[in-house]
Each structure stands twice: as C-alpha cells, then as structure tokens.
C-alpha cells in the first residue's frame, strides 16, 4: 500500500493531465505558421470541416529534412540514458542504506530525500551554478585542499548537465527502489549466504533481482522527464549541449513557429510512449504478482 502510494505520486503527476493537451498540440503540429492571434492557421474559427481539411503533415516532413532534429533527439536520448544510469548508481546505494537503517530513522531519512522538493526547482539549479562555477564552492574547496592548481571548468559543460539531472531526479530513483528494498525479507539474504553466497554474491543474486521492479520504475521516472529536460541544460549546460528541449524552446520562442514546435513535441512524445508503455506494463505485472 505504502509502495503503491509512493509510486502513484510521481506517476499520476506524469500521466494524469496528458491526453487533452496532447490532442491540442497534435492539432497545432498539423497547422501552418501565420502572423496572427493565434500564430497558426487554420483554427476553429474557420469552421470544423475547413479546419480539418487544411491540416497536413508538412511540419513532420520538414523535421526529416534537417539533421539538427534527429541529432538533437539522439543526443537527448544519450544524455537521458547516461543520466539515468548515473542516477541509479547514486540512488541505489542511498535507497539501500535507507532500507537497512534502523527502523526509527527511516521516516527522517525519507523526509530528507523529499525535502529538496520544498524549495523551488529553479533555485536549486541556480545553487548548482554557485557550486560549479570557476569561482564556485567546488573549485574553491578543491583548490584549498590542494587537489588542483587551476579551477576545473565544470559549469557550462555536459558534466554539469549530468550533475544537475542526477541531483534533480534522485528522489524519483530512490523512492521506488527504497520501497522495493524495504519489503525485502532479510531472511532471503541470510538464506542465500547459508546456501553458499558471499555477501556480494547474495546482493547480486537476490537483492538486485528482488528490487528489479523498483529499479525499473525509478529508471523510467528519471529517464522520461530527463529526455525532454530544458531548464537544466540551458542553465548548467554549455552551448554545445544539444537537447531536444532546447530545440523545442527555440522553435517556439525564437522562430515563433508553434506548428513546427508542436511537431517536435509530438515526436518527443512518440519516443516517450515506448518507455511509458513499458513502464506501465512493469507496474501492471508488479500489481498482478502482488495479488
């Protein structure tokens, strides 16, 4: 029940208000740019039939003609994938430590994981600028303890983007894994050791497979939003950080081309549908197994 709740929070947030906005965006993606209010044509003002008859896939064809778009999708996929793996590597030990912590500490630890959500996401990302910049805390600290002589350039690189994404989405990774590990019967580990496993082997053969569903849920909850991430790459990333979120922003705000921007968004969603469906299936399987 607790687990269901923990999963449901981000999950509902992710999917609840999804279908109607998508229909609107899809319609705009089939329209043409126009200097007017709203900045595309046709609209419902032209009558439903006229409107429908004037829609076409021109914008989608356009997206295939410039390599910018597929490169941006690919680069976003790569960044999201690497960030997800990094988040897993950081989040799993944390979730594990939490699940192994004394019972009375766990609510506090859980609270600490959720605590960052209480401040604005933007402020937290800005804080990283202060930490990672050439004159920032990180460099000052490293210079002070003498590990480096010249400041490291971390800000405005992909490294900073990874740090930002891992930091921001870490709770989405920790919570489902924690809830899986929390329910893990400790005697299973003892049984594995009893049957000849070293600690490490028992972890690998029992703990990991039994927290698999938590890992999968956490990975999707990180991967899906990271793929379309805009704020983190634009604040922490450099000019070479190519992400579809930024391309989308430019289509929308610089080119004021709502139809092409919508087409970019629709394709992004189509790419995301695959992991979303997989995620859903995983959750269903989980629910069935629990019955």
């Amino acid at each position: 029940m607790k687990r269901a709740f923990l999963i449901a929070v981000p999950y509902v947030w992710l999917l609840a208000l999804f279908l109607i906005p998508f229909a609107v965006v899809f319609k705009i993606s089939l329209s043409d740019i126009e200097l007017a209010i709203p900045p595309y044509t046709p609209t419902m003002k032209d009558g439903l039939w006229t409107m429908l008859s004037q829609l076409d896939f021109e914008n989608f064809i356009f997206l295939t003609q410039d390599d910018l778009y597929w490169k941006a999708y690919l680069s976003s996929l790569q960044i999201a994938l690497i960030s997800t793996v990094l988040t897993l590597m950081v989040g799993y030990p944390m979730a594990y430590a939490m699940a192994r912590a004394p019972e009375q500490w766990r609510p506090t630890l859980l609270m600490l994981v959720i605590l960052p959500f209480w401040t604005s996401f933007l402020i937290r990302v800005y804080a990283w600028i202060g930490i990672l910049s050439n004159e920032g805390f990180l460099n000052q600290f490293l210079l002070w303890i003498g590990i480096i002589d010249t400041p490291l350039t971390v800000l405005n690189t992909n490294t900073a983007v990874y740090i930002g994404i891992v930091y921001t989405y870490l709770p989405f990774m920790i919570l489902p894994i924690y809830s899986a590990l929390d329910r893990l019967d400790g005697s299973l580990i003892e049984a594995a050791e009893d049957l000849g496993c070293s600690r490490l082997k028992a972890f690998w053969l029992v703990t990991i497979p039994l927290s698999k569903n938590g890992i999968i849920a956490g990975c999707f909850l990180v991967f899906i939003p990271a793929l379309g991430e805009f704020v983190i790459p634009s604040l922490l990333g450099g000019s070479g950080t190519l992400m579809i979120g930024k391309v989308l922003f430019e289509e929308f705000f610089s080119n004021r081309d709502w139809p092409v921007a919508s087409a970019v968004a629709v394709i992004l969603l189509l790419i995301l549908i695959v992991p979303i469906v997989l995620f859903q299936r995983n959750e269903q399987k989980q629910a069935e197994a629990e019955k």
């Binding site: 019967d185 005697s187 049984a191 009893d194 049957l195 070293s198 029992v206 497979p209």
Partner: peptide, 20 residues
C-alpha cells in the same frame, strides 16, 4: 567462519524461498 563456508544449511521459519 561465515555462513557460506559452513557445511551447515538452514531451513528458515519463513522458508525464505527466492520469489524470483
């Protein structure tokens, strides 16, 4: 001597069967 190095096996009260 750690559990995995003992010629002793245990049947757990909860059975501790690996569900996966």
């Amino acid at each position: 001597v750690p559990p995995n190095k003992r010629a002793v096996n245990m049947m757990f009260q909860s059975y501790a069967l690996f569900p996966h």
